[in-house]
Design a protein around this nucleic acid. Sequence first.
DNA 1: TACTTTTGACCTCAT
DNA 2: AATGAGGTCAAAAGT
Length: 318
Amino acid sequence: MGDDNWDIGAIVRGCNINRPNNVVPTFENDHDDWDFFYRLLDDDQMTNFQGLGDIFSRTSPVAQQQNSDDLSFEIINPTSSVPIFADQVKIMDQNDNQQLLQPAQLRQQIIFPPPPPTALTYVQAVAPQELIYPQQQLAQSVRSTPVIQTRRRKNQSIKIIYELRQEELTDDTWAWRKYGQKPIKSSPFPRNYYMCNTSKGCKAKKHIEKSPKAQDLFVVAYYGEHDHPPPVNKSCRAGCARGTKSKLPRGISIFPRALSSKSSSPSSVSRRRRYRSSVTPLSPTPTLEIQNGSPNKDEMVDASQRWQGRSRECCYDS
DNA sequence: TACTTTTGACCTCAT
DNA sequence: AATGAGGTCAAAAGT
């Protein structure tokens, strides 16, 4: 903590979500918001969840958004790489009755709409002014869905994380180009890095990785801001910048770490040993992957079936 | 030919 | 200061 303003725990605010069962998350005013949350963050009142997904996982079908005043929750953790989660959230119903909900109750009562393409802009403006990075103070009129904001490194721009189903990966206004992929220590699945491909010089980036919690869930994190309007042409959106062959972001690949006997960047592997090499690995571990151009591009498939015709020799020492 | 993807190397930052 | 993880670069390969 100390004088680092970012050592503040979670911020939960009510805003902009569906209202199943007439539950309306809200707060009386900003001051009360913060008092309430600082109380929640006291050690003896805080319980860390296993992850934000515990709150935000969609356990039921996404509800139709009734109107633009729908409310939603968000949790913002601007500082630490290990998110802190409130174990209770104050809810006001339409009769102004207050109640504190436990996570399980939240999961039951709050159904989140899919993320709109303007989510980034909105989220950046939600936190009280003193907790927003200067570059994040944008228009507050845009409404959005539940998110997390974190940053791992001090110069890293704010990160907003969604947990999306596979089909929801397509709900992205922007065009993205993949520029990297890395195995992540905390996950058996690699992280795929994308940069905005709509405008040259745009600082917006995102990464996608498969959630270890469920087969059809993906963790999508957004960084930075777009410095241009979204592309209008549908064929130039959501990673399909060069064509319309796939609705999915291009090049999403998910290979469990177990496939690789080495670390993330085995230096002994030469560049010429690429995919489509002729050697089939021994006993490939069944994996999940999404590849463009697959027979059914919108489905995750058991990648082990495709190992028969395509190997990744680079993952093995010879 | 132009563009995207892949992936090892390299860099930065946190611990 | 050393180490490792995460993020980016860029050449090669694919489309």
